[in-house]
Design a binder for these strands. Structure first.
Lengths: 216, 216
DNA sequence: TCAAAAGTGTTAATAGTACACCCATGA
DNA sequence: TCATGGGTGTACTATTAACACTTTTGA
C-alpha cells in the first residue's frame, strides 16, 4: 500500500474545450478565471480532479457545473504537463473537448461563472497554455467530423442542409461545394428528411432534416 | 501560490508502450513488475513523474532507463484515470508509445529489468489496465502509418521492400498485395533505393532501400 | 418582378483494388 | 534444374473534385 510514498504527488486538473455552434460560427465557452494565478484572465472551463472520481467523471462533473448539461458528447484530448505551465503551482491538466447544443445551454450560468461563447476564429489570449488546447481540440474535431456524425451534438434536433453545411465549413475552415456536400452527406445514413419546412431563412423554405440516431 | 491547497494531489505515472519489429512481428517491450501491487506480474515500462520534469521529459527519461535510447520517436497517447485502476493507490497514468529499432536496444538492460519483447498479437495478461493501453497504442500506430513514414523508426537503416511490407502487414494485421504496396510506397517520397543488395534472404538478392530523411 | 436561398447532375481526375507471371541465383 | 524470394503492369471500381442553372416565394 505504501510502495509509492517516495514519489511526489501533483494537482491534476481537467480543462474542457466546450464547443458550440451559433450564428454560423463554431464557438468555445470561456470564462474569467476567478482565482490566482491568472485571476481575471480568460480561461477554459476547468476544475480539479477529486479523490473519489475518475478523470472522465471529473470532466463530466465540471461540464455539468458550467453548462447544466448531462449526457454530452465528450472525449479526452491530451494531457498538458509542462513544469511551469501554471505559474502558481505545478498542475498537470487533462484536456477534454465537448460538443453541445448551445440552445440546451443553461444561460443563467453565464452570469454565475462570467462565462461567454466566443468565436473559435477570434479567440482572445487565454491563460497558460489554453490557446494550444483549443487549437488541438479544433483539429481533432475537424478530423473526426470527416467520418463520424458528431455534428448532431452541435445542432438543434431539426436543421436545414444549409445549416449543416455551414457547420462543416466553420469546423473545417474551408468552403465546401454545395452539391458535393449534399451528395456525400446523403450517401451516409446519418440524417433523414422530415416533412417539415423551415421558412425562417428563405422565402422558398428549406426541408428540415434530423439525425437518424441521436448519438450522445 | 496557495489557492489550490484545498485540492487533492495524486501520484502521476508514465507508462510507455514500446514497439519494436523483429522476426517479422510487431513486438512490445514488457517486464516483470518489481514491486507491489502486482509484484511479479507482467507490466508495461513505466515510472513516476518527478517534480522537476515535464511529462514529456519523464517519458523520455523512463524510455532511456529501460532501453538505453535517446532521440526516439515518441508520442503521447492518452491518460488513464479510473479510481481503482491501480489496486494499491490512486495513480493517474499518462501513456506514451515509442517506436524503436530493436537492434539499437541495449539488451544488457533486459536482465536488469526482467524485460523482454513479446509479440503484440500474443501478449500475456498485463497488470492493471496495461492491455487496454497496448490495444489503443497499436490502433493509433496503425492509423498513423497509413499516412506518415513512421516505419523508419522500427527498421534498420537499410531494408528490403519485402521487410517493409511485412512491417506494414504486422502493424495493420492484414495481408497487403505486393504490387499495390510497392506502387503506393514509391508514389510517396519516403524511401529511396540504394545500390546495395541484400542476399541474406533470397538467392537472387533484394535491393536495399533507405528512408530519405531519417525522422526521429 | 426580383432578390434570396433551395435544390439538383454530369464529367474528369485520382486513388484504390484485384489479379499472375517471369527473373535471378545458389544449392 | 529447381526451389526461393524479387520484381513487374493493366484493367476495373470507387471516391473525390470541379462546375451552373432552375425553383420557389414573400416583399
Amino acid at each position: 500500500m505504501t510502495a509509492y510514498t517516495s514519489y511526489p504527488q501533483f494537482y491534476v486538473s481537467v480543462d474542457c474545450v466546450i464547443f458550440g455552434f451559433a450564428d454560423g460560427h463554431l464557438k468555445v465557452l470561456i470564462h474569467q478565471r476567478p482565482y490566482a494565478p491568472g485571476q481575471g484572465e480568460m480561461s477554459l472551463i476547468g476544475g480539479f480532479v477529486q479523490t473519489n472520481e475518475s478523470i472522465d467523471t471529473s470532466a463530466k462533473r465540471i461540464l455539468k457545473e458550467f453548462t447544466g448539461l448531462d449526457n454530452v458528447y465528450m472525449q479526452q484530448l491530451a494531457t498538458f504537463g509542462e513544469v511551469e505551465r501554471d505559474p502558481g503551482e505545478r498542475v498537470i491538466s487533462i484536456v477534454y473537448f465537448a460538443l453541445i447544443n448551445v440552445n440546451d445551454y443553461d444561460s443563467t450560468l453565464s452570469d454565475i461563472h462570467n462565462a461567454k461563447w466566443v468565436d473559435v476564429d477570434s479567440l482572445p489570449t487565454l491563460c497558460f497554455d489554453h490557446n494550444d488546447m483549443v487549437q488541438k481540440a479544433r483539429h481533432t474535431v475537424g478530423e473526426t467530423i470527416k467520418t463520424e456524425p458528431i455534428g448532431c451534438n452541435l445542432l438543434p434536433r431539426y436543421f436545414t442542409l444549409s445549416l449543416l453545411q455551414t457547420l462543416y465549413e466553420s469546423i473545417l475552415g474551408t468552403p465546401i461545394d454545395k452539391r458535393n456536400f449534399r451528395r456525400s452527406i446523403s450517401e451516409k445514413d446519418y440524417i433523414q428528411a422530415t416533412d417539415m419546412v423551415d421558412r425562417s431563412s428563405s422565402r422558398r423554405g428549406a426541408t428540415l432534416y434530423k439525425f437518424t440516431s441521436r448519438n450522445t
